[in-house]
């Protein structure tokens, strides 16, 4: 059984999600969001949904992180609130 991998990855997902909304640095948030997506991708892979994991890895962890970094590049780096 692979339930410990499940739990470890799920902990990382929650950790990344909380970190992504509490960090003040927007670039850091973008990277944390990428890490969150990658952990979700691992979770899909553990569940056996390889197609979804592949999509999550390419879209979530890959391109959307780049889009966020590109958007941060055009705004101020630190959040105001």
């Amino acid at each position: 059984m692979h339930w410990p991998i499940d739990l470890i990855v799920l902990t990382f997902v929650i950790f990344c999600a909380i970190a992504a909304i509490s960090v003040k640095d927007l670039l850091g948030t973008a990277i944390l969001f990428g890490a969150y997506s990658f952990m979700m991708c691992l979770l899909w892979a553990v569940m056996g949904a390889v197609d979804v994991a592949f999509t999550e890895a390419s879209v979530g962890a890959g391109v959307s992180t780049v889009f966020f970094v590109a958007a941060v590049f055009r705004t101020s780096r630190r959040t105001k609130d």
Partner: peptide, 10 residues
């Protein structure tokens, strides 16, 4: 696994 969406994104 794979297909148009993933390949296009890559």
């Amino acid at each position: 696994p794979g297909g148009g969406f993933q390949g296009g994104v890559i």
